[in-house]
């Protein structure tokens, strides 16, 4: 079952093509990793595929239906997105912040229902953020902030999880924590799409890979043909790599 389907997606800013004829799909319960050098168009792809930016041409379908046919709330109930940048205007408490995650599930001006409360509690439990629920979101460490932001996404209880560079600015402990959490979420039946810069570390997790360079897809496929996959990574990033104990590392020789 194709959960997410992108066909011939094109997007430009001015005359520069940021995305050029990009097509791929994600099946239910799969983890897709999107990687590529800086400026490859990864974040743009996430912004368009999530409906934040308008596409120029091409098709995006979620559960077989055009992206544009969903309302903002419907989209948020299906898809939980963690964007890479986060610039809040005010310093609100962590608890208030996480509670905002249930917005899409509630009606006009209605607030907490029992089920929403459970989603929020579960999200707090999963991300282990109880100790700093009363802190302000601007007073957290990077690792804490990322866990809090993930808690808000989980409170939405989405079936598709899209994380744009979730490991950015995190220490190694939190990087592993995020990857393990995503693995558990996928195991529970969620579909996961991630853009990850630090692919060395994340290499063993995803089911499929999508490599982008200058707005074009350079490779898409699973890990069955491992040599081909490593070769594609080498070509895309213009660096020699070796696969060692599930880590894809730069080759110094």
């Amino acid at each position: 079952m194709k959960v997410f389907e992108v066909e011939k997606l094109t997007f430009s800013i001015g005359r520069k093509k940021i995305l050029d004829d990009v097509s791929f799909h994600v099946k239910k319960g799969e983890w897709l990793l999107i990687a590529g050098p800086n400026g490859a168009g990864k974040s743009t792809l996430i912004k368009i595929a999530s409906g934040l930016w308008k596409k120029e041409s091409g098709n995006i379908k979620i559960w077989g239906k055009e992206l544009g046919e969903y309302s903002s709330k419907e989209l948020a109930r299906m898809m939980g997105i963690l964007h890479s940048s986060f610039k809040p205007l005010y310093n609100i408490s962590v608890l208030d912040f996480v509670r905002l995650g249930i917005y899409a599930k509630t009606g006009f001006l209605s607030f907490y229902s029992g089920r929403d409360k459970k989603d929020v509690e579960l999200a707090i439990e999963t991300t282990e953020i109880e100790p700093f629920l009363d802190k302000g979101i601007l007073n957290l460490s990077q690792g804490e902030l990322q866990r809090v932001r993930i808690a808000k996404v989980l409170a939405q209880n989405p079936r598709i999880i899209v994380f744009d560079e979730p490991l950015l600015h995190l220490d190694i402990k939190h990087k592993v924590w995020v990857l393990e959490l995503l693995a558990r979420l996928r195991a529970s039946g969620k579909t996961v799409i991630t853009v990850i810069h630090d692919f060395s570390m994340a290499f063993s997790y995803p089911d499929r890979f999508l490599l982008l360079k200058n707005g074009k897809i350079t490779y898409t496929g699973d890990r069955e043909k491992q040599d081909e996959l490593v070769k594609a990574f080498e070509d895309t990033f213009e660096i020699r790599l070796t696969l060692k104990d599930d880590f894809l590392l730069p080759d110094k020789d």
């Binding site: 912004k47 948020a76 997105i81 995650g101």
Partner: peptide, 23 residues
Amino acid sequence: ILLSRELDLIALGDEEAHSTGVN
């Protein structure tokens, strides 16, 4: 005032608001 929750979310940034279900 009826837009309070939408505004709470927009105060976190357009991206955050959009991904939570606000246009």
